[in-house]
Write a protein that binds this DNA or RNA. Sequence first.
DNA 1: ATGAAAGCGCTAACAC
DNA 2: GTGTTAGCGCTTTCAT
Lengths: 325, 325
Amino acid sequence: MVAAEAGVSRSTVSRVINESPKVTPEAVAAVSAAIERLGYVPNRAARTLASRRTLTVALVIPENTARFFADPYFAAVIQGVAMYLSGTEYTLTLLIAAESDAVKTRRYLRAGNVDGALILSHHKDDHSYSAVTGELPVVFGGRPMSAEGPGAHYVDVDNVAAARAVTDRLVASGRRRIATIAGPQDMAAGLDRLEGWRLSLAAAGIADDLVEIGDFSPASGAAAMRRLLEAGERIDGLFVASAQMASGALDVLHERGLAVPGDLGLVTIDDDYFAQSARPPLTTIDQPTTGVGERMAEVLLDLIAGGDVPASTILPTRLVDRGSA
Amino acid sequence: MVAAEAGVSRSTVSRVINESPKVTPEAVAAVSAAIERLGYVPNRAARTLASRRTLTVALVIPENTARFFADPYFAAVIQGVAMYLSGTEYTLTLLIAAESDAVKTRRYLRAGNVDGALILSHHKDDHSYSAVTGELPVVFGGRPMSAEGPGAHYVDVDNVAAARAVTDRLVASGRRRIATIAGPQDMAAGLDRLEGWRLSLAAAGIADDLVEIGDFSPASGAAAMRRLLEAGERIDGLFVASAQMASGALDVLHERGLAVPGDLGLVTIDDDYFAQSARPPLTTIDQPTTGVGERMAEVLLDLIAGGDVPASTILPTRLVDRGSA
DNA sequence: ATGAAAGCGCTAACAC
DNA sequence: GTGTTAGCGCTTTCAT
């Protein structure tokens, strides 16, 4: 094998591969050359078995979250994770966790098949994985809801501040009757954005009674918009908790002949295709989607390396003003 | 360990785990019970090292394809793969292959770290992975372009037939001046859909000179639509090679005050959010996206198992008539 | 049908 | 700094 070719022992080869500091430069050179010449690639299984590190991290997507694969947000996060990892020695295992046997997934995680796990979940009850947090480094995507306990590491954006900032635009435009189409109230993002809207209105002394709930999908946004309109109030401002829902809401407004921002101001969150190509293009919040994935991976690797990382990593967002307020 | 608990040897335990037929039912029962009782989970690395099967398949996404992660098509395929695999013993490794060192990726694949690979690529030059086809079971998503050689296994839909079928609707509506916004001509799907459009027109004796090319994104569809309109021809029918491009094209038509299907018929491919929520909703082709992922995984596992699978697996599509032709 | 023994390819003490 | 010696936890001949 490589050892013979380089004229050293297997141990030295191993040390070079693992970048041990205690190897002479000459030895490193000889081994590297031999590796190159032979096109040698270490066997992962053997390394794992001997060292008890798998060099693998799992990305767990609970099944009911998987249904939202079409959501560009998730796709972007996954992409961020994969891209960050591709620059490291680590490998990514994608796990769609059937809720029928979350047990199976948890066992897999605890069986030492991975060095850590990233958990991307949509709903509150998805967090059945918090149990593994004690036995394995785990990083959640998005602020986990109560059940996780205070120790859970997560990466997220400040949804409260983002929602508040964008709603402030509505207020600044002189809107006084401001409604919201909120996200699901069993998701942190849904709750936080609603809270941000409330804070903005409270600060301006405006009533916060016009609330309809959607599930972040365009169809749910359209339905919520209809309910809002049918309630009979004359709204002059609207904060929709996601651009996908805003797109649905906008369809309904067009149907009814209501103009944005002429008849009412409309702002949202997510600077994706929906916000950009809406007519009119929407004032919104740009959040770092692939960035969330990248940081999740980074935090996890730090945790695995024994680093001592703060439990929460909050990424900055940016307000994109397109004049739709 | 389990052997002691069940009162048998390690070999027997191993046989039970690997479902060897030569074990008495009693032994199986005893071992299964012991496994259950102890919550035993076999160590993957050790199994792999001893058996030389990794129980892992790679899903390779060339970096320039990764940019299209937002494309719901890709997300759906990945989801299909992951969900199919979750029902098997196999694990999915997601590999974003930097084109800078495709060498690294190929080595990884050849180093025996996976039992097979699924390759999802967008463009012609992505297919640098065809080289591994000889050394490892490989299944491509989408018909690979020439370079792969005839042996390459792939799963796809019949894009030619689909495009032809939907264009036929335009013809059936009496449209005589039918243009197309085609996909990239370095992708099989782009070429095939253009070909289908041509065949439909040829059969009807209609000229096929009105062609603009896009890259499947909404923005490119809008740009192509502008070029088509500015060419000055009065078009009465249009086949757009993807719903995302159709959405962009429709925006331009609205801008110019052209009505669908009043002024011109518009049909496309993909029954996704874009086709469904377009105004008007579009006559289109529904293709099994997660189905493609599932079949890719299924074919790969068959290949790994030594099965002898036909090189191409063509999945059926369905025409969805929404009256936009 | 089952057990005993010999590795799979590597890393990790431990000496030198 | 480098080599030697044991395993890591399984599967797999080979006997029995």
